[in-house]
C-alpha cells in the first residue's frame, strides 16, 4: 500500500505505446511522456501473422538442419 502511495506522490513519467492521442492528452496535462510508434505484428491481421509465422518456422528448421550438418 505504501508503494502505491509513493507512486502517486511522485512525478509521473510515461512511455506510451501505440495510439498517439493518449500521449497527446498527457502532454496537454504537462506530463512527461515518450511516444513509441508500436503496432502489433502485421497490424493484428491474423492471416498475415500466420503466413509470417510459417516463414519463421521454416527458417528455424533451415537453421536447425544446417546446424546439424
Amino acid at each position: 500500500m505504501s508503494n502505491l502511495k509513493d507512486f502517486f506522490g511522485k512525478k509521473v513519467k510515461v512511455i506510451n505505446l501505440g495510439i498517439p492521442s493518449f500521449a497527446d492528452d498527457l502532454k496537454r496535462q504537462n506530463v512527461e511522456v515518450i511516444h513509441t510508434d508500436w503496432r502489433p505484428p502485421a497490424g493484428g491481421n491474423k492471416k498475415i501473422q500466420a503466413l509470417l509465422d510459417k516463414v519463421e518456422n521454416w527458417q528455424n528448421k533451415v537453421k536447425a538442419a544446417k546446424g546439424a550438418k
Binding site: 498475415i48 503466413l51 516463414v55
Partner: peptide
C-alpha cells in the same frame, strides 16, 4: 505485398 507473401509461403514453406 500480402499476395506476394502468400505466394512465397506456398513456394517455400509448405
Amino acid at each position: 505485398f500480402e499476395d506476394a507473401l502468400q505466394a512465397y509461403v506456398d513456394k517455400y514453406c509448405n
